[in-house]
Amino acid sequence: MLKVLDARERDDPVTMLTEFIAAGGYVPGDRLPAERELIVELGISRATLRKALDVLERDGMIWRHVGKGTFISSQGGPAGAGNLLELGRHLTPVKMIRARLCIEPAIAREAAINASREAILRINAAKERAREALTWEEYEAEDDHMHRAIAECTDNPLLLGMFDQLNQVRRAVALGNVVRGSDRPPENHSSFMEHERILAAIEARDPSGAEAAMRQHIASVSARLFGED
């Protein structure tokens, strides 16, 4: 049972959820209760719960698989996430890009083979939110959601877990190396069209096309941000 929290903690759904996990004795690989149960247990809204889950997922404490549930990460929680962030601080942008080129095109290929119609709709929704973003921070969050939705399309928990770890390291590398020259992405931002090509290939069930489109996209990001291809 969740321990009693003070007023400050009760205003923080992330703390409440973290305490719930600790008190429940959950270990890596365990599945958390369904959202409807957590809403009742924690006394918070579905929207608030999902924001808290997003934070724990970014921190590496949990991972989610659409249709199967939310699981405790085998990384061992925040300590595992901290190790990944530390790795990111010692990784050059070029090596980060090369790692992405090894993994993400293959993930896009698998997504084209396994994606459900509902999964494709989730990719499209994130893609459109990224295009409509009013700030770089908002764009980057939706770009993350789109790339993760592609990983979810593989229907392979191992590939999804690999993507999540790669993405945490990527964030750490970008944090110290990316400088934006504007408040928001321009209307002709090259990633918009690249995202369209990736989605079109996945929707067309074209594994080779999806792999090539993702590879071109990552190379384009490298050239734009780091001057590398």
Rank of each mutant, 00 (worst) to 15 (best):
D6R: 07
V14A: 14
T15P: 01
E19T: 15
I21H: 04
A23P: 06
P28E: 06
D30L: 06
D30I: 08
P33S: 03
A34H: 15
A34D: 10
L38P: 05
I39N: 00
G43K: 05
I44F: 12
T48I: 05
L49Q: 02
A52K: 02
L53H: 00
D59I: 08
G60E: 12
M61L: 03
M61T: 01
H65G: 00
T70N: 15
F71V: 03
F71P: 00
S74I: 15
G76V: 11
G77P: 04
P78H: 15
P78W: 15
A79G: 01
G80A: 12
G80N: 14
A81W: 15
N83S: 05
E86K: 06
G88V: 04
R89H: 10
L91W: 01
L91M: 09
M96R: 06
R100D: 08
P105A: 08
I107G: 06
A108P: 04
R109Y: 10
A112P: 00
S116E: 07
E118V: 08
I120A: 01
N124F: 11
E128T: 10
E132W: 07
A133N: 03
L134K: 14
L134P: 02
W136R: 04
E140M: 04
A141W: 02
E142T: 00
D143N: 02
D143F: 09
H147M: 07
T154L: 11
L159F: 14
G161Y: 07
G161F: 04
G161D: 05
F163V: 01
N167L: 07
V169I: 12
A174R: 01
A174W: 03
V179F: 12
G181Y: 11
S182W: 10
D183M: 12
R184N: 01
N188D: 14
M193Q: 02
M193W: 03
E194G: 04
E196V: 07
R197D: 09
A200H: 13
A201C: 15
E203T: 12
R205V: 14
P207H: 15
P207L: 13
S208L: 12
M214G: 05
V221N: 02
S222K: 02
A223I: 02
A223K: 14
